[in-house]
Structure formats: structure tokens, C-alpha cells
Write a protein that binds this DNA or RNA. Structure first.
Lengths: 129, 129
DNA sequence: TAATAAATAGGAATCATTCCTGTTTATAAA
DNA sequence: TTTATAAACAGGAATGATTCCTATTTATTA
């Protein structure tokens, strides 16, 4: 990969956002610094960064989200408010042991939990009173 | 849900296919029996069947696949040949215990493993000789 | 048998993502 | 420093899975 101002700015934008932004959200964020950046460039660069293991991708619904945290971790998605949280459930060691139990060669271990987050659950309970 | 010939045929098609068919694959299959079935009908009925817990959905890439097996199980996707296998790794009991460790209310536990399946791996090794 | 709400076919619309093309830029060799 | 060239880019068109829309048909219940 050659040095690129756009790609650096894109990487910074992903790392700055703990919300796991979509490509479009990264586009909007980077636009503040590079007004005429192209959405296609954002997609291309995010793809390159992911291919090189510099960022991770998370799929939820029909959109891809990008995650600057490359440590092994899992995610929780709240169906009520749409928030996507990091969820530490299995560590690297556990995942490594699991891989040895499977005949296939595992590259990725993607766990997505969905449900209602604690905040929404409490709000829901209140409304029911 | 009212009785519907189309929906029944669609459900049979999903259950008959161990490959976890996409909506379009179900459409093609059902077309043999109901030639003028609409793709929109297939999508609508698959959605209803999933909403009622009669079938499950699996997301891989940008397509949804449908699974007639409603028991708790996980999936492995081979990046080489595109096959999607059932993978029993965590049983219902284990998943239940995990849920108690999390503050949020968990409804779904979706694990997708990706990599190279044993068959493709062996083929690859041969080619390298 | 009639009323009616669910289900349907077919096509249009949506939207995230990828592709295409002519132009610009980073890098390395001359 | 200049030149060559392949990567990166902007902007817009294309793609493809899925959903929406509307007029028509069908299952169910009174």
C-alpha cells in the first residue's frame, strides 16, 4: 500500500469512533476534512484496511460496520435502539482451543449477539407499569 | 397465518435442501411446481416463516440463507467453494449459560465460522506439490 | 352465498456496494 | 531533479438483493 492522505484520514475516522461506523458515516466524517472525497474511495480504502488486518468488519443487517479494535472480541446489537456494543465473552485463548476442535481451517470466528440492551430493557419495564 | 399453497411449497423447498438455500434458490425450486410464483411472494413468505420461528435465517455476505433446522447450532462457511455447513460447537445448555453472564437480554446467538473447508484444504495442498 | 382481510403476481423502487473511466499523485529509477 | 508508471482518486453509472406498491385472487368466517 502506497502512502495516501485519504486512507490515513479514513483510518483515523474509524479509530476515533467507538460506535463502529458504517462506510457512509466514515464518508460524512472524513468530508469535514476532505470536502470532495468520493464515497467510492471510502469503500475502497476501508476494504484495503480490512484486507490488511488494520481494521475489522462487522456485518449487521445489510450494512457493514468498521471496527478499529483488532483484538478478538464479540458484539451485541440492540434491536430496540440499534446500538452495537463490544462484548467480551470469549478471549483469544478460548477461541484458539475451539479452532482445534474443528476439522476445517478456521480463519474467522464471528459471534453476533442480538436482543434488548439493559438500558432499553429498563425503559420498557417502566413503560409497562 | 392463513393457509397458503405457495407458503407450504416454499417451506417444503427449504426443508428439502440441506444447502441452506437463498431466497432466489427457493424461488427457482418452487417455480418447478408453481411456474408463475413471484419472487416477492417467496421473500414475503420466507420472512413470515422466519418471524414465526418455523425456519431460521443465516446471513453470509450480502445474502440471506434460510435454514429448516431450528435447533441451536452454528455454521461454517468455506471461502474457497462457498459451501455453508452446519457446525455443532455449542449446544443449547452452553448457550443458555452464556446468556446469564451478559447484562443485556439476549435473543439470538449467531456464530459464523469462516475459513477453508477440509476438502478444499486437501485440494489446495495437492496443487502445491 | 357473501363479505373481507390475507395472500398473490408483477413490476417499480430502494439502497448499500461495486464498477468504470479519465485524471491525479506517490514513489522509484534515470 | 526530471520522468515513468502504477496506485489512488473523484464522480457517476451499474449491480443486485431486498422491499414496496397496486390491482387482483383466494381462504375463511358469518
Amino acid at each position: 500500500m502506497r502512502h495516501s492522505h485519504q486512507r490515513n484520514t479514513i483510518l483515523e475516522a474509524v479509530r476515533a469512533k467507538p460506535v463502529h461506523p458504517t462506510a457512509y458515516q466514515v464518508f460524512e466524517s472524513v468530508k469535514e476534512q476532505i470536502p470532495n472525497i468520493s464515497l467510492a474511495t471510502v469503500y475502497r480504502d476501508l476494504g484495503q484496511l480490512a484486507d490488511n488486518g488494520i481494521i475489522n468488519t462487522i456485518k449487521k443487517g445489510n450494512v457493514v460496520r468498521y471496527d478499529g479494535n483488532t483484538m478478538i472480541h464479540q458484539h451485541f446489537y440492540c434491536e430496540e435502539c440499534g446500538s452495537l456494543f463490544d462484548q467480551e465473552l470469549f478471549d483469544e485463548k478460548f477461541v484458539f482451543q475451539l479452532k482445534t476442535k474443528i476439522v476445517h481451517e478456521i480463519e474467522n470466528f464471528d459471534l453476533m449477539l442480538t436482543g434488548t440492551c439493559i438500558k432499553c430493557k429498563n425503559n420498557g419495564d417502566k413503560l409497562k407499569c
